[in-house]
């Protein structure tokens, strides 16, 4: 017994040595920076504990930034989820030729990664004041888009732009779930007398809702954290959270570093909650996929 004890310890030490590089990396470049900001959100410039920073988040301009950010993220997530689901259902259950399916999936892989600055350029070239669609609508259809109140640098414009990566993401995540619906389930339902609406209501929707709702939350968090597209599209003209935070990091526009931490903390809270619910729902959905 006495002889085996040190051996065991040595094994334990090598075990932990093996994981040490990763642990150090994670602490230094992921956990510590986050913890630093989060804790900074709860102290004042003199280092005293306070909730003032969090309360200050509710001042009109910051609150407005959060509200518009949440609105854009929610709208692009919901729009992306609905259209993405329709597209995924079409390629998975619609009986289309298989080349359509693989073409759509490959394109979605590209488009879901086509975010950031280039995406902003593409939409400026499409729906900007001199964009192709704007000009075609004006010259061919006699419809003045901007005269009708549209602006790419607005809620609607940004939502439309974000959907360019939201829809593909939805398609990529939800198609496997739709593929997991067995043909026998629909056959069993119909032979038991169910209409296809009853089958969807009693079987498909209960099976899919955790995946769909979970993916919706993932899309929401995805849009909420998107900085580059917003910055490149709007410069600093639109007051949304990532842009406020970007400006704050650049030059302390809030004149209070700790308030800046609180803004970051608020972002983490919002994306964090949506991601945790996403992961939880995903585990729930996978329970049935055995």
């Amino acid at each position: 017994m006495a002889a085996t004890q040190p051996l065991l310890n040595r094994r334990l030490i090598t075990d932990w040595l093996g994981i040490a590089p990763f642990a150090i990396f994670a602490v230094m470049f992921l956990i510590a920076p986050t913890v630093y900001l989060v804790s900074g959100a709860f102290v004042d410039p003199n280092g005293n504990l306070t909730l003032q920073n969090l309360i200050d988040l509710f001042q009109p301009n910051i609150l407005a930034a959060y509200v518009i950010s949440i609105k854009i993220s929610a709208a692009s997530a919901i729009g992306g989820a609905i259209i993405g689901f329709a597209l995924a259902a079409a390629i998975s259950l619609g009986g289309l030729p298989s080349w359509v399916r693989s073409a759509v999936l490959t394109f979605c892989g590209v488009a879901s990664n086509f975010a950031g600055v280039p995406l902003a350029f593409a939409f400026l070239a499409t729906l900007g004041r001199l964009g192709l669609l704007t000009i075609v609508l004006r010259d061919v259809f006699g419809f003045n888009l901007y005269g009708a109140g549209f602006n790419l640098l607005s809620f609607l414009g940004l939502t439309l732009t974000y959907m360019y990566f939201q829809i593909p993401l939805m398609v990529l995540i939800i198609t496997p779930a739709l593929d997991g619906l067995k043909r026998e389930w629909s056959e069993a339902a119909s032979v038991l007398g169910a209409t296809s609406w009853q089958y969807w209501r009693m079987v498909v929707i209960p099976i899919l809702w955790p995946s769909v709702f979970g993916t919706l939350l993932l899309l929401f968090a995805n849009a909420f954290g998107a900085v580059a597209t917003a910055v490149a599209l709007t410069g600093s003209s639109l007051n949304i959270v990532p842009i406020v935070l970007f400006a704050q990091i650049r030059g302390d526009v809030l004149h209070n570093p700790n308030l800046g931490y609180a803004v970051a903390f608020g972002m983490v809270v919002i994306t964090g909650i949506s991601n945790f619910i996403y992961i939880w729902l995903r585990m729930r959905a996978e329970r049935w996929q055995k």
Partner: peptide, 30 residues
Amino acid sequence: NKRNIGMVFQAYALFPNMTVAENVAFGLKV
């Protein structure tokens, strides 16, 4: 769904979101 036929499939094809009782009740419910 208009033929009133019972069918059992090779891969069971039970509805995974329903309990045993709910599965059996499905046809009666619709």
